[in-house]
Design a protein around this nucleic acid. Structure first.
Lengths: 270, 270
DNA sequence: GAATGATATTCAATATACAGAATGACAAAG
DNA sequence: CTTTGTCATTCTGTATATTGAATATCATTC
């Protein structure tokens, strides 16, 4: 007889992390922070505890400690917990240290302004995922808002073509990942592979409305070390607007910026 | 006989946090994250332990747990630890939830573009400090770079005039804080008070080269609830360039944007 | 190549963080 | 007004996270 399990839980993965760790409280704290970060609204103690499979008592102490560290805010009236701006201060420390994000910010803003597109600098974590580490919005017209810290599957959209083209992964491995992706208008694996091949030739990943309907995404790889790209520069704009703004010019400018960054980071393409 | 204390330490405050906490590991983890965030470069285990007054052994487990949670990165060759991009993902969760930062981003980008200035949205934490929670850079010309998460003393610069003007703090309290501030060109307390008075009349904080030589800063308060301002919109630009761009127009636009945000947040000035 | 000093890491005893039960606090339903 | 249910919080014994010493690893110097 197992216990009734009234709501879906993130417990299993957390339990694995807690087991064999010499500092389980930290795993729990991280899980709580992530849960609060995902949530739309502040959460009560029991909800957090249930969701993570924690003992409410333990969970209370975790939350109290996080509140004391100003990573979590607590509303005494509603007894609800939410992320506090302390997490921003941590993020700032990372941003300052990260060479890529520091170097990329300027070029991203220039491209964003010149072509009226949203620009991202992303860090590539193997074949698994990418994270937006620098953002520049055009400010004009529609905004395709993405925030720093946003996480995407590695093989999605234009960056995905770059990672597939230059990451040195086997076709079987790519296929397995590819099949898990969600697109507005999914390309066939064969089509996608030929686009990847094109990316290998041109040095530029292109996604024309596959990922998001009516939106064109371009991505140019950046190398910190030889081997596989560590980052990418990404341009995002409405397909119609991009044609007007001069797609070829943007493509060239994007590739040039990526090349320049690769040099500054001491890397080398290929 | 106390132990020799070869290097300055952050230990005391951490020890206080650890005492009486039911989750000391979390306090330690937070301290480690902050230390790594402040550091220019990756740090070794012993350095971290010494700086925080932790047992190296304990510190190792803390760092391992943080690495497992992808909040800290570890270079096996150099055995150095640094913040990892996981902290960005946490920050993103906060940004998404925070009503002010979501609502402010658009207006900030518009003002930044229209007037060629760096724009900040800051959250006010009483008389103690403020944190930049939204940033828009002009991209053109010199950049006065400030990152999301940056922390400043509450009473400094233009925002300081707003907080002093509308925070309802006593003069003695203000004086005490004021005396701790560092400016490029410090105003006298009397001068500063009269500027605060002006801010109370005009609804706009102005700092002309006090905080940073040659740089003018404007700040307009935003109210989430009646009482004292919860946030502010800040414009930063080279004094010379701002005069050319049309300072009065920027002042009006800034105040208008702040008023609009106050309404959207359901607040009320005063 | 041995010795020194600095690291990082493991290990075993013990102070204590944690789980579970019990108690308060509060709101909604009867 | 009482009951019922949910939620937050306190309390207590015990499994275990923490500690400090011991060990391992690696440069650096002699």
């Amino acid at each position: 007889m197992t216990k009734p399990n009234p709501s879906p839980e993130l417990a299993p993965q957390l339990n694995r992390a807690v087991k064999d760790s010499k500092a389980p409280a930290i795993s729990r704290a991280a899980a709580v922070l992530r849960l609060l970060g995902k949530s739309e609204s502040p959460l009560g103690l029991n909800l957090v505890a249930r969701e993570l499979g924690l003992n409410p008592s333990t969970c209370l102490y975790v939350l109290r400690a996080l509140v004391a560290e100003e990573l979590v805010s607590f509303d005494p009236d509603t007894k609800r917990y939410a992320l506090a701006s302390g997490v921003l201060t941590l993020a700032r420390g990372w941003l300052q240290q990260d060479e890529f994000s520091s170097l990329a910010q300027g070029p991203l803003e220039r491209l964003s302004r010149d072509f009226g597109v949203t620009m991202l600098g992303v860090e590539i974590f193997g074949i698994d995922h990418i994270i937006a580490v620098a953002v520049a919005q055009s400010g004009a017209g529609f905004q395709l808002a993405t925030q720093v810290g946003s996480r995407f599957p590695a093989l999605i959209s234009a960056t995905g073509r770059c990672i597939a083209a230059f990451g040195g992964y086997g076709e079987a491995q790519l296929k397995a990942r590819f099949d898990t992706l969600r697109w507005d208008d999914p390309p066939s694996f064969a089509d996608w592979l030929s686009q990847v091949e094109r990316t290998r030739e041109t040095g530029l990943g292109v996604d024309e409305g596959n990922y998001i309907d009516g939106v064109t995404v371009l991505a140019a790889p950046v190398w910190r070390v030889r081997g596989r790209p560590s980052h990418a520069l990404v341009a995002i704009g409405l397909s119609a607007a991009l044609k007007r703004a001069g797609l070829p010019e943007l493509q060239d400018a994007l590739k040039a910026a990526a090349r320049e960054l690769t040099v500054k980071l001491g890397g080398e393409a290929g």
